[in-house]
Design a protein around this nucleic acid. Structure first.
Lengths: 342, 342
DNA sequence: TTGTAAGCGTTATCAC
DNA sequence: GTGATAACGCTTACAA
């Protein structure tokens, strides 16, 4: 049984017109006499009538909703993205379902299936699902991917290569010659992109290609990787993301190294702002822009109905703060006092 | 026009039963012969049939969705809460709409009105709306508040008083006698609670009631408040939240003070984990628990239909890390070298 | 235990 | 330009 709200019928009765006319007064006013439209609207207001979106959805097959799926809401990369996506969708008149796959392909699959019958489309950020399943879901409902490059599926990508290049150039320009990439989850598409770009840049500069694993994209993993970084005798590192970079800085500091005097660190994403000490030099991934762009693209596809193979690239930018500095011959020589005396 | 998906009719035809039977196989299997249920379900699976929630909603007036409203997704307090809320809702079979009011009462009001006709209820975290409007919306659809105490509206509260008490007792026990509360937004209900509790505790200990404003709950505001803290000559402070506390630590360090040797700082919320330097002593607000509890409470109200005046309190806990230490007579005497030499 | 049929509130297709 | 009327896919009395 439905709740006792005012329906199109109530308005129609009071206005002395048919329900069809009331409907048109809201959806296709151009088909009606201006006077009728105005009168119907006035009565609707009086009665406090609001079109029932559910009934409308059942009739039109359009819901006015989209779903946004992320692997982990609590990962600092996503909140700005979610926020911007939500804001854009709201502006365009859509409501957004949020789903958290908890980094699990199966849960992502389940959420996609569960939400599909009640949304006009999906934005899937950093999908964990395999290509085949993503293709399947994208075939059922319009979908836009963020941070995953699957030909044929509309997607918004971050210019990882450009960002890494800028970071490596910055470090190389400061005199560093042993530069490591501290990697995140090996299975992560984003990590693969970043690692490849870092290795390519190293090759281009003619320096050794060094990759040091942090395994997981966490502060603790970064701390633990600090020891490996020292053992490798590098003077600079580009981390998988800001969190790993922050952990690295902490782990390095705890071992008596001073950043950036002894070692330079670059993060990725710029989601920690200047809240680390020292403020982190990082690659700004404009994740908010990515969220907004993905929603805009999705809704364009939803509303025009065309199935184009779009691939938007969001530019990155190197934000120089204080975790990087010039190479000195003292670099990577741990064991000295941690005190910051002159 | 609707998309050409498999409907209840397709399943009914293939199974050789009526549509009502198929419906019952999913909603009231107890009314059917076990064999029939099994057969219908099998065929439904074969066909890939999934009940259309929109059609179901139109018929039952129940949507299987709730809306979760927050003032700012990017505020670190909310992601864990959102994550837990979403997970709990998902477990209970509900999908969740996420709304961001951008700290604006009007946007919150608009979101509430917009989402109302398509959800079974609301969870509103840290509402910015005035009491009257909240009461109005809560009268239309079941709603549970987090972090706001309005009699008659079901709510989940954080045990602020207990947490602040523990923090003040901890500090007092360490020998501190000039302890300030560094406040957040004056208009924020949460801030008022925290400030009152801090002042009450100070009174209880017979020490001066000191409140120092940070105005906004940001890292920068915390940094700026550091100067006022020094000027006030305190040896310890409890901050509005972890972000302000982090800013405070940064601002204090930049002015040559060493934490916790020169000044002890306690945060609130425990959303930064141990990622600050030094790791922050803070009051764990269990915000994830609050999110999960609010959803559980809401759905209980939605499903039983009873309109009880529940007020759950989530306990807090003091997490002692390294930003607090014993009072020394050297405290709050800025101007010395910042070097950490023994 | 199962089938029939009447909604749920809209929109879309025809007529007029 | 406006009004009937049939969907949309499902649930649920009421019958059988």
């Amino acid at each position: 049984m439905a709740r006792s709200s005012i329906t199109i019928g109530d308005v129609a009765a009071k206005a002395g017109v048919s329900r069809a006319t009331v409907s048109r007064a809201f959806t296709r006013p151009d088909l009606l006499t201006a006077a009728v439209v105005e009168q119907v609207r006035r009565i609707a207001d009086e009665l406090g009538y609001v079109p029932n979106r559910i009934a409308r959805a059942l009739s039109t097959g359009r819901f006015g909703t989209i779903a946004l799926l992320v692997p982990d809401i609590a990962n600092p990369f996503f909140p700005p993205l979610i926020r911007a996506a939500q804001a854009r969708a709201d502006t365009l008149g859509y409501a957004v379902f949020l789903g958290d796959s908890d980094e699990t392909p199966d849960r992502e699959d389940r959420l996609l299936a569960k939400l599909a019958p009640q949304v006009d489309g999906f934005v899937v950020a950093s999908p964990r699902l395999d290509e085949e399943r993503i293709r399947f879901h994208a075939g059922q409902k319009p979908a836009v991917l963020i941070n995953r490059d699957i030909a044929g599926v509309p997607r918004v990508l971050i210019d990882v290569r450009g960002g890494i290049e800028m970071a490596m150039t910055h470090l190389f320009g400061l005199g560093h010659r042993r530069i490591a990439y501290v990697s995140g989850p090996a299975a992560s598409w984003a990590n693969q992109q970043r690692e490849q770009a870092a290795m390519a840049a190293a090759r281009r500069f003619g320096i050794e290609e060094l990759a040091i694993p942090a395994y997981r994209p966490t502060y603790e993993a970064g701390q633990a990787a600090a020891a490996r970084l020292i053992a490798a005798g590098v003077s600079a590192a580009v981390a998988f993301d800001d969190i790993v970079a922050q952990g690295l800085v902490a782990g390095l500091s705890a071992r008596g190294l001073v950043i950036p005097r002894d070692l330079s660190i670059v993060g990725f994403d710029d989601v920690l702002a200047a809240t680390t000490y020292p403020p982190l030099t990082t690659i700004d991934a404009h994740c908010a822009d990515a969220g907004a762009a993905a929603v805009a693209l999705l809704l364009e596809i939803v509303e025009t109905g065309e199935r184009r193979d779009a691939a938007l690239t969001i530019p990155t930018r190197l934000v120089q703060r204080d975790s990087t500095g010039p190479f000195t011959t003292e670099d990577a020589k741990p064991g000295r006092s941690a005190s910051a005396g002159s």
